[in-house]
């Protein structure tokens, strides 16, 4: 009998990198579907573009770095990065935005730091930060949701808009586009208008933006499924959302005229997406349980600070990147006490 002589444990591990990444992608499906419902096919183009560029760049970088394509190209990590990046894009953003974003995400943030497992910063957010700094105008053209739109662009019109950069035929940006709720809020408060007054605009829904709040709900649904499946731990999402509530509640109670309510904060922008899918990126986050609570709390604090005081309407990406910097230190300071010590 020829016997393999290998150490325990002898059964194969119950998870794989590809398995984890696939589940993250499945969990995003409801949110993406809601996005398509409210804002049309644009997001699907953005995802396809980003994923295509990401895989091509990943393959070339693996070649350049003399690493095998198998298993790294097929671990879905680049796909997750690409999808998360695409979900932060306006639906009709020109195609080269995705290319530039993926260059920064895959080439700079991931492979120049050593590839899978070695990146200090969340690649999707590095990509997003790069394009929002480089092309602020192209990233400010957001579509109005289905209820407020004269007619969402169809498949062909969407493709034309993305690849030529101009709207086809009778469509005009003035009719199609709309400020995002966070934008409206920021400019409104700056013009000394009351929050309640600003919120009368039709782009606002019950809590956050019209349409956006439902997308957030579906992201949360997928995220909860990930928590249930133990793909992510509950610590980061709970810390993010609880901290937002903890900080925004007293501010809202003290000054409801200038401060949005906690639900409005949560259901606006990318906060729910970040809480469940972005701040939970394992590589660039914390690995101790206490550390994850602190990491999530930090993301919430920076997001609120940027929303209130910063130059951007939403601050999730920068908040995550700032906390990425702090993650190794947090991990070091939150090492658990070993048994018997």
């Amino acid at each position: 009998m020829k016997l393999t002589f290998a150490g325990a444990p002898h059964f194969p591990p119950i998870n794989s990198v590809a398995g984890v990444m696939q589940q993250v992608l499945y969990a995003l499906i409801p949110g993406i579907a809601a996005h398509v419902w409210f804002f049309g096919f644009g997001i699907l183009f953005q995802i396809a573009l980003a994923v295509g560029f990401a895989l091509a760049l990943e393959a070339s970088m693996l070649k350049l770095r003399d690493r095998p394509l198998q298993p790294f190209l097929y671990d879905y990590s680049a796909v997750v990065t690409a999808v998360l990046f695409a979900l932060c894009m306006p639906p009709l953003a020109p195609w080269w935005v995705a290319l530039v974003g993926m260059v920064f995400a895959i080439v700079v943030a991931k492979h120049l730091y050593g590839g899978l497992g070695y990146n200090l910063f969340n690649p999707a957010m590095v990509g997003f930060a790069a394009v929002i700094i480089a092309f602020p105008m192209d990233l400010s053209q957001w579509l109005a949701p289905r209820q407020l739109s004269p007619g969402l662009p169809g498949l062909w019109q969407t493709a034309q808009a993305i690849f030529t950069g101009t709207l086809p035929g009778a469509l005009s940006w003035d009719a199609l586009s709309q400020a995002t709720p966070l934008d409206a809020l920021k400019t409104g408060v700056a013009e000394n208008r009351l929050v309640t007054e600003i919120r009368d605009a039709p782009i606002f829904g019950d809590f956050g933006g019209l349409g956006w709040e439902w997308i957030a709900n579906f992201y949360a649904l997928g995220g909860l499924w990930l928590v249930y499946r133990r793909v992510i731990s509950w610590h980061v999402p709970v810390a993010v959302l609880a901290t937002v509530v903890l900080i925004s509640t007293p501010m809202w109670l003290a000054g409801p005229d200038i401060n949005p309510s906690p639900p409005q904060h949560i259901f606006s922008g990318a906060l729910v997406l970040a809480a469940f899918f972005i701040a939970t990126d394992p590589v660039s986050g914390c690995s101790t349980m206490k550390g994850r609570l602190l990491f999530g709390a930090g993301v919430a604090v920076f997001t609120l600070a940027i929303r209130r005081f910063g130059g951007y309407p939403d601050g999730v990406a920068f908040a995550v990147l700032l906390m990425n910097m702090a993650a190794p230190l947090i991990d070091r300071l939150t090492r658990p006490r070993t048994y018997g010590h």
């Binding site: 290998a6 194969p12 998870n15 990198v17 298993p71 497992g117 394992p282 590589v283 986050g285």
Partner: peptide, 17 residues
């Protein structure tokens, strides 16, 4: 005992923790 993938870099997922 068959594994579905070779050994890959640690992704710091914290499951072991």
């Amino acid at each position: 005992v068959e594994r579905e993938q070779p050994v890959m870099p640690c992704i710091n997922c914290g499951e072991c923790v």
